[in-house]
Amino acid sequence: MSSGNPQPEIGPIEYEYGKEHSLPLEFNLRKLAETRKPILLPGHRLCAGCGAAIVIKLIGYALRGPTVIANATGCIEVATTIFPYTSWAIPWIHVAFENAAAVASGIEAAYKAFQEAGRLPYKNVDVIALAGDGGTYDIGIQALSGMAERGHKVLYVLYDNEAYMNTGIQRSGGTPIYAWTTTSPVGSIIPGKTQPKKPIADIMVAHRIPYVATATAAHWADLFRKVRRGLEANGPAFLHVLSSCNRGWRHALEVAVEVSRRAVDTCYFPLWEYKLGEGYYLTDRSLQIARNPKLKQPIEKYLELQERFRHILRPEAAKLLKQLQEYVDAVWQDLLNRAVNAPK
């Protein structure tokens, strides 16, 4: 390396058999780069400036030991495994679109049985189900709900780029209201998608699983902690990560992290976690905003970066913009009412 910093050799990540593996969480970026191998190796074919790649790489730095990823169909699945290569440095399985949670359930149940029979070479293996918004909000929710209800110890990570980006930017249950997609086209009468985003994380809270959280790549330390808590949870955990897509959101290549930051600053996508028996906690920037409401930005700050909302920022759409702001405010207020650490 030209910088002279020692870096771990890139390649498959292996763990010694028979040992307890519990890597500490590392927040010192220099130490992180020197000591941890990335789980997503260079050479994948995700688009330049893709938010999901950042999210996956960050999640990899918060793993505690041997981990298996069950991946639903989607951008991450197709772009990280272009023949004859793979970008995955840890075991990875893709089955079909709707069943990442089901496959992860099977893996977890089998490992549990192996462990009880003393046949698992590791003290512990973590299982992560990884899916996009289509594979979670829509076609995958049945398997996800089943996994949660049966209580499999799986961390389900939703990387939410708010549409079916892999098949050509079609709307999903995670697409926000008024967003343009190819199946919610903007016309003179219909202003893009007419339904709001499904509150998927709250749906998972309603399953009364041990841990649910939201995160973005812009708030990486917060993301690290949440991944770790999800892995350590005594049962199913759900992590909802907002993941920008410059192709579908129609924003500049270099603002993936900035868009995510503004999503939180405008309270469009608040950061919180839910612990069973304790309730909702605001975290990171969202907690700061709760304590000092002046920090809250108007929704335009989030919309103005993205061409998919261009029609909402036109003067003649002022009413729609107002409605959107009111919707965001109502959801935020609802969260403030529920959060145990919000100032009352």
Partner: peptide, 9 residues
């Protein structure tokens, strides 16, 4: 419908 390559168009 539901998005799927190569029928989405």
């Amino acid at each position: 419908g539901y998005p799927i390559t190569p029928s989405s168009e």
